[in-house]
């Protein structure tokens, strides 16, 4: 996937265009005043009893705008929903230690009507599992993602519709921190472009102990590894400079499955 795949595409009446972003195959068609979109995502099969199949749904969605438009726009995005990232290998941060790790997250594709700027859909470029961050009684639905915790920015992958997220973790608690999962509040991240790759700004997590929670801050500017990166999109929601939240899953893991 090159950067040129993004941007505006003018469609003639009845014209259909296909796009491929990672595992996402997207088809867009213009019919009179409306756009129609259809997507397929490798690895995401529908069950025989899914409501859409029972309705006889062929997968097309139709979008009608106040004013007729011929141009649709595709833009790279990160979704507002949080992502729980589980490291491939067990990752322990010993007392007093700090580390910067890089995780590779999937990119999202925003489909807009270029004239009005209204968004039709925001789609992930790979099939995402869903998880829960919190206890059985309260928490939030997140996307579930497994990634290696790289110690330096991973090499660029051709065709990879992904974004590199830099996380700086400091363990200021009196014990060791075995990181099983980290919850990334994606709504606070900005998206940048540099060296042929997408980056988020850096998240800085400071763990001070089970009872104290974690201090989290989002720098809001390009990570040190890509200082000249160009801002592609700001955050969905601008966070305060520092806030306290639960970010590490291991300490709040849910016990008692019965």
């Amino acid at each position: 996937m090159t950067r040129e795949a993004w941007g505006d595409t003018a469609l003639k009446e009845g014209e259909e265009r296909e796009f491929q972003f990672g595992s996402l195959a997207l088809t867009v068609r213009r019919e009179g005043r409306e756009f129609r979109t259809r997507r397929t995502l490798a690895g995401e099969e529908r069950a025989v009893a899914s409501p859409s199949l029972l309705r006889g749904d062929d997968g097309w969605k139709r979008w009608v705008f106040a004013k007729a438009s011929k141009t649709m726009r595709l833009s790279p995005r990160v979704d507002a929903r949080s992502i729980v990232v589980a490291p491939r290998d067990q990752f322990h941060l010993m007392r007093g230690a700090e580390a910067t790790v890089f995780v590779v997250l999937p990119l999202w594709v925003g489909i807009e009507d270029a004239a009005s700027g209204q968004t039709m859909a925001t789609l992930p470029t790979r099939s995402m599992g869903r998880g829960w961050f919190g206890s059985r009684t309260m928490g939030e639905v997140c996307f579930w993602h497994q990634s290696r915790f790289f110690h330096e920015p991973p090499p660029r992958q051709e065709g990879g519709a992904s974004v590199i997220c830099t996380i700086h973790i400091a363990n200021d608690s009196k014990g060791d921190l075995p990181v099983e999962k980290v919850c990334l509040r994606m709504r606070h991240f900005s998206l940048f472009w540099a060296d042929g790759r997408y980056w988020t700004d850096e998240a800085r997590l400071r763990f001070e102990g089970k009872d104290e929670g974690s201090e989290i801050s989002y720098t809001g500017h390009p990570p040190p590894e890509a200082p000249l990166a160009e801002l592609v999109r700001g955050p969905h929601e601008r966070p305060g400079s520092v806030f306290s939240a639960k970010a590490f899953f291991n300490l709040f893991s849910i016990g008692g499955d019965q």
Partner: peptide, 14 residues
């Protein structure tokens, strides 16, 4: 379970 998007990966299935 992994194929069904409505099933949450965490809490883990039993």
């Amino acid at each position: 379970v992994r194929e069904e998007r409505l099933c949450l990966r965490e809490p883990a299935p039993l």
